[in-house]
Design a protein around this nucleic acid. Structure first.
Lengths: 252, 252
DNA sequence: TGTCGTATTTCATTATTTGAAATACAATTT
DNA sequence: AAATTGTATTTCAAATAATGAAATACGACA
């Protein structure tokens, strides 16, 4: 076994187990051991440790992820403060446009939704706080990438870019062109590039130093994403919200 | 060093480091090593692993917690489904009462806020999603404990109960009496038992099998927590919300 | 009661973690 | 520019903890 220098393999394994639990709803020992290719005793000890530390729950021999990792991470989210500032604007944005507003930040090679306001109408896109989307085929991701320094963009757009639908832009050159265009326009769109029936339009949010720190989007079913709605409703509403937030961020 | 059987010490250490990062905003290696009583090389390897796995971020030799643990945990939160169901009721509850509504679940010996609707007035209590409160001196905690089977209550009320204010009930016998009363009344209150200037009133939420799974509260500054407001506004609003949710849960 | 599949413990072996010390790096002072 | 200080990182032999095969316990079902 080739060993990485200066890393603790045991910890890495434990974190992997935690991630697997997150995707699994509930699992037994043997089942998970097979999935992760760990021996039963090893996995048993890891799970026992996770339970002892409160990260996993055990009931009737079955393991589940607890809320502890969420709780821990919530402290980091809270520190972003962004949320408090954006929330009232996002509410107004959602009302004006009748669509769902999302606040997202870049995290690794994807974006994560850190706040949202659901559209007040029954047909809407199902999303959740903490949900991750690929940066290269989401409006929020592209709005952020468009305003990021080139070297940061390179890290995120490490080929190959995964294809999700026939509209996903997987060609890095082509994507860069689009990002340049988005920078010019001040907004980015996603037309079914991740999920066929979901479209979105997003604007970047910049802090006092004009660095992009997040993005704000309207996310909706493709059928409602008409050029007319974009021009007369979504874009004006997003721009107003972004301007107000940027002004606030300028002060803080 | 006396070794626990069947637990992986390295993983436990790594998780402790993660928790410390959550409380720390940002830290250097030496500083954190002192705090956790770990040798510099050991901590270095743990932090390197956390960074490699995406749980921590490193910039200019300083370490911070990333959003990854939050993202992982969000999947567990989402699975509770409760939130979706409660949200519209909580919104109406907050509007009717003009106070902040919280949805909380039991997690270890405390409760964690998994959803909230802020009061639409400027003077309100500062809380955040993922925030933990002690079960023995919060309205949400007591509302849940009051309807939990005795053996589960024992686990949570492991003495000594920590004192936070002069009103905190630290005597287990006395607290049990109050829980019995709360069970009779169908709601629990907290009168400055955790934070002097914060009061709350909470009702339990029960699933189809009549098991308590969460609680719903109104949380507000002590100055507004009058007997009159409780009787004419808070309690009726909470009861209506709880009844509607329970009916929904009965079906699901 | 017996059988089967899964979970847990034991224990000798093996591999990884460990920390002292050496070294590299960065910021600040002289 | 050189010296100083404090922190971060690497090295390496010793110490320790992790490992998995096998034995055992448990629990469901026949």
């Amino acid at each position: 076994m080739s060993r990485q220098p200066n890393l603790t393999a045991t910890l890495a394994k434990g974190l992997e187990v935690m991630e697997a639990l997150a995707d699994l709803e509930e699992t037994g020992l043997t089942e998970l051991a097979r999935r992760l290719d760990l021996s039963a005793p090893t996995l048993f000890r890891i799970l026992s440790t996770l339970v002892a530390e409160g990260y996993a729950l055990k009931a009737a021999g079955r393991y589940r992820l607890s809320l502890k990792s969420w709780e821990i991470g919530a402290k980091a989210v809270r520190r972003l403060k962004l949320k408090d500032l954006v929330r009232p604007r996002a509410e107004r944005l959602s009302q004006r446009s009748a669509e769902s507003a999302h606040l997202a930040v870049l995290q690794g090679s994807g974006v994560v939704i850190i706040d949202k306001v659901d559209a007040a109408q029954p047909v809407r896109v199902d999303t959740y706080l903490g949900q991750r989307a690929p940066a290269h085929c989401s409006a929020t991701g592209k709005a952020i990438l468009a305003f990021l320094p080139p070297e940061r963009v390179d890290e995120v757009l490490e080929p190959p870019l995964q294809r999700y639908t026939e509209r996903t832009i997987c060609d890095v050159r082509k994507l860069r062109k689009e990002l340049a265009a988005a920078r010019g326009q001040g907004y980015a769109v996603n037309r079914g590039e991740w999920r066929t029936d979901v479209c979105a339009i997003a604007v970047p949010l910049q802090d006092h130093a004009k660095e992009v720190v997040a993005s704000l989007s309207l996310t909706l079913p493709t059928v409602r994403f008409t050029e007319d709605a974009i021009r007369t409703s979504f874009l004006p509403a997003l721009r107003e919200a972004a301007a107000a937030i940027s002004a606030d961020l300028g002060r803080a």
